[in-house]
Nucleic acid binder design. Structure first.
Lengths: 159, 159
DNA sequence: TATTGTTATACTCTATAACTATA
DNA sequence: TATAGTTATAGAGTATAACAATA
């Protein structure tokens, strides 16, 4: 332990896990209230980031069952936030895509959240803000390291 | 914008919000599956951090209604994770506290989560790990800036 | 016969409204 | 009369099991 800036892997994991737990609570309070479930929001975000995908793949990614995803997509479809499309190559498959309305709603929610977060960030010290800014790429790397985070089209339904 | 390390407040807020959104998904997948609801976990964590508190205050903090909290506490009590106590000073009040079992369960969940996170952190570059370690105090400051994050005993039921 | 998705049914969690007990 | 909490009832969201359609 020659370099005090570096923690052991275990200590860092504990530290990050604890902060994520607390920031999760913060995030929930920052988010516009329950017009949309947490999973629904996550599915829309996935569709926006990775493009249209199979229902089975979406279910595996969100950690819910296939029937649950069927119903969730039905609800999103009813609200005009997502849409089902047939797969020309395989008649059994349903491809789920995001609608323009869904994209707009996601953008609006993010705007509200960012606005509230900006108020809180303004209360931090400049050093803290700089540290957060410097950690953004690392957060991206961490989020991208999630197994199964390829494009939806390529991903398989989990072995 | 003389210093490239510093973003505008709005850009930083957007950046942090986007990362929190993605890391939230990561965190959900890292957590041991649904033996305990997200709100239940959050309540236990709050009780551990801030000590015993009123049911009304807990409800306000978690953003759920008072009846929902009544039922949640009943479930936690049945599982021996939390306990109700009367308030000697006011016969209407119920004080909720955490049990030793609840504390142990929370610790076990964190251990599992940290273990899984350690694997993912090991895949990052040393620079990324250092950036995350350097941002931990800022994350604490951010989480502590949440309005109503005083001790539960002092907090009021939200005006 | 295996795979993709849907339907049927039950359980958990939360909300709103009505109620009880204490201040 | 106001406040703290509970009970009653309804709805959203999820899981498991059984089913239909395509490969």
């Amino acid at each position: 332990m020659k370099d005090p800036r570096l923690l052991t892997d275990d200590a860092l994991a504990n530290g990050v896990a604890v902060r994520l737990e607390r920031l999760l609570g913060l995030f929930r309070r920052l988010s516009p209230p329950h017009e949309l479930s947490l999973t629904a929001t996550s599915v829309l975000a996935t569709l926006e980031r990775s493009g249209p995908g199979r229902l089975t793949v979406l279910a595996a990614r969100e950690g819910v069952t296939q029937p649950a995803m069927t119903q969730l997509i039905s609800r999103l479809e009813e609200a005009d936030l997502a849409a089902r499309e047939p797969d020309p190559a395989d008649g059994r498959v349903v491809l789920v895509r995001m609608t323009a309305t869904g994209r707009a709603m996601l953008a609006r929610r993010r705007e509200i959240r960012a606005g509230r977060l900006a108020v809180m960030l303004a209360a931090l010290t400049p050093d803290d803000r700089a540290a957060l800014a410097a950690a953004l790429p690392a957060m991206d790397a961490l989020a991208s390291a999630v197994p199964g985070d390829e494009t939806l089209a390529a991903a398989r339904p989990l072995s």
